[in-house]
Simulated scan of single mutants.
Amino acid sequence: MRKAALLSALILSAALAASPAFAALKTGAEAPDFSAPAAIGGKDFVFSLAEALKKGPVVLYFYPKSFTRGCTIEAHEFAENYDNFSAAGASLIGVSADTIETQREFSTKECRDKFPVAADANLSIIGAYDAKRDRPSQSGDSVSDRISYVVTPDGKIGFTHVGSDPIQHVAETLQFVRQWQGSHKH
């Protein structure tokens, strides 16, 4: 019996050590303003958080790497729900440490021309949002964790979701945006 308990403790300890340590900005914190090179439908532009917030809340989601399995699933799910976010008055922007060249292709193929993705190759935005993964990716590159924020028009973090399930990020942020919109109707 004692061996089983010890084995269980070791397995749990190993599982916790293997999972990423997530850090994130807290609800109510000031959202760091930024502008970044981005692409939508394969076309470059400069995304400005301040400009986007003039239109309503912004779902700002960080993901580790374009064209990887989980990140592709997440992009497809956000694209499928683009109209739902738009109906709730929110805009979307994905951010990763990929280059703008990669983001051009990802915005067309995986985001399905619905929403932009920004390039943060120097990790300045990822760092400002406390979204940098503690451990490098398998390729040795520094990447972001999977963290989604909803930034409200007053420039504050209204909602934070941290987790590895890409579909949950879409469901949770959409639920928050709908609730926020319902409580802010004039």
Results as ranks from 00 to 15, higher is better:
186 H>Q: 12
60 L>T: 03
160 T>D: 12
75 A>P: 07
15 A>N: 01
167 I>P: 00
5 A>T: 14
67 F>C: 00
169 H>S: 11
158 G>L: 10
139 S>N: 14
145 D>M: 11
100 I>N: 08
4 A>V: 08
98 D>G: 02
28 G>M: 09
138 Q>N: 12
26 K>F: 06
7 L>I: 10
119 A>E: 02
53 L>D: 03
126 I>F: 06
142 S>Q: 14
62 F>G: 03
55 K>T: 10
145 D>Q: 12
127 G>L: 01
23 A>L: 12
5 A>S: 11
115 F>I: 05
180 W>Y: 13
33 D>K: 13
40 I>D: 00
5 A>Q: 13
127 G>E: 15
114 K>Q: 15
123 L>C: 07
7 L>A: 09
77 E>P: 01
176 F>S: 08
64 P>I: 10
112 R>Y: 02
181 Q>P: 04
28 G>R: 05
78 F>D: 04
36 A>H: 00
105 E>R: 13
114 K>T: 09
128 A>M: 06
39 A>V: 00
163 G>V: 11
120 D>E: 10
69 R>V: 10
76 H>Q: 06
106 F>L: 06
151 V>K: 06
162 V>R: 07
89 G>C: 02
47 F>W: 02
171 A>C: 01
87 A>M: 11
176 F>G: 03
49 L>R: 12
56 G>N: 03
56 G>P: 03
66 S>W: 01
150 V>Y: 07
142 S>D: 11
148 S>L: 03
179 Q>H: 12
50 A>C: 02
21 A>T: 14
74 E>H: 04
61 Y>N: 07
137 S>E: 12
38 A>Q: 02
183 S>E: 14
62 F>Q: 04
84 N>R: 15
152 T>H: 14
49 L>W: 10
11 I>R: 04
41 G>P: 02
88 A>S: 07
21 A>N: 14
77 E>I: 01
90 A>R: 01
121 A>I: 02
102 T>R: 09
171 A>E: 15
17 A>I: 03
51 E>G: 11
181 Q>I: 10
100 I>Q: 11
89 G>H: 03
148 S>H: 06
49 L>C: 10
160 T>N: 11
73 I>H: 09
70 G>P: 09
145 D>I: 01
108 T>V: 15
37 P>G: 08
22 F>H: 13
150 V>I: 10
115 F>R: 03
159 F>V: 00
150 V>W: 05
50 A>D: 07
116 P>E: 09
79 A>I: 12
131 A>F: 02
4 A>R: 10
151 V>W: 10
137 S>D: 14
135 R>A: 08
161 H>A: 01
184 H>M: 09
96 S>E: 06
7 L>Q: 10
42 G>A: 06
42 G>F: 06
159 F>I: 00
65 K>F: 05
61 Y>S: 07
46 V>I: 13
28 G>E: 07
40 I>H: 00
66 S>M: 04
3 K>F: 13
157 I>F: 08
6 L>Y: 08
124 S>W: 00
101 E>H: 11
127 G>N: 15
8 S>Q: 12
145 D>W: 11
16 L>E: 05
155 G>H: 04
50 A>Q: 08
82 Y>I: 08
154 D>Y: 14
98 D>Y: 05
155 G>I: 04
